[in-house]
Amino acid sequence: MLELTGVCKFFGKNEILKGVNLKVDSGDVVVILGPSGSGKTTLLRCINFLEIADKGTMVFGDKTIQLRRAKKSEVAFVRKKTSFVFQNYNLFNNKTALENVTEGLIYGRKIPAKEARDIGVKALEKVGMLDRSDFYPSQLSGGQQQRVGIARAIAGNPDVILFDEPTSALDPELIGEVLGIMKKLAAKEGTTMIVVTHEMSFAQSVATKVIFMDSGVILEEGEPREFFVHPRHERTKQFLRSILYETEYNI
């Protein structure tokens, strides 16, 4: 459904992405792992043009788009078919939870207000935030805000949802509620997701494909069982070892 080829991105003199290829099929849950600075967030942001890649091609459905020279209509097309969940939630501070979900529907996807409201209510219900639909972000906890962020993302019925470290900014107790919703989306709704995260439990239990990135390239990819039990690259082994030590060290 979505395929990226040869994505390169420079920030000044730093080459952050050095020719990345990614293939995502419908229903896939792709988890991208890697140390910080490996370019995983940049890759994600290149997909919906929050960053403009310097080189590369995207095939989305039946359209082929040159990433560097993408036209406004092509960008709008991709943004209609994708949704983004941010690490810092980025809920619209001056809108209620429900309004946060409906803004994009009414003004981005040109859905009439009444229909948008119904969709919004359903989305909030799915993430368990319906009772707080007229609360403002400043009145919600981090976990609740991120759940609204996810509702905002699913309301548009996108082909792919992009998650940028959705739980990294949350208190440990709140991580579970967000991951739970993501797992439900993957299992029950069959949503196609590309997730950048450090949460190994999610990668192991929900992912259909795990990708390891380091220094701007994809070093290894495969199914979770293969990946975690029989990693091929030395660097991957190193990374997994350090992560596992972390989980064993919980004093």
């Binding site: 919906n48 943004r79 983004f84 619209f92 501070n93 803004e103 994009g104 003004y107 981005g108 905002r152």
Partner: peptide
């Protein structure tokens, strides 16, 4: 900037992002 990016990602045009999300918050 996060507010602006979220608005763009949700499909709002730059103009709408400013008038409905950014400007009201800047004023407050």
């Amino acid at each position: 900037r996060g507010q602006y990016e979220a608005a763009l990602a949700a499909g709002l045009s730059g103009f709408r992002a400013y008038t409905r999300i950014i400007a009201p918050q800047a004023f407050s």
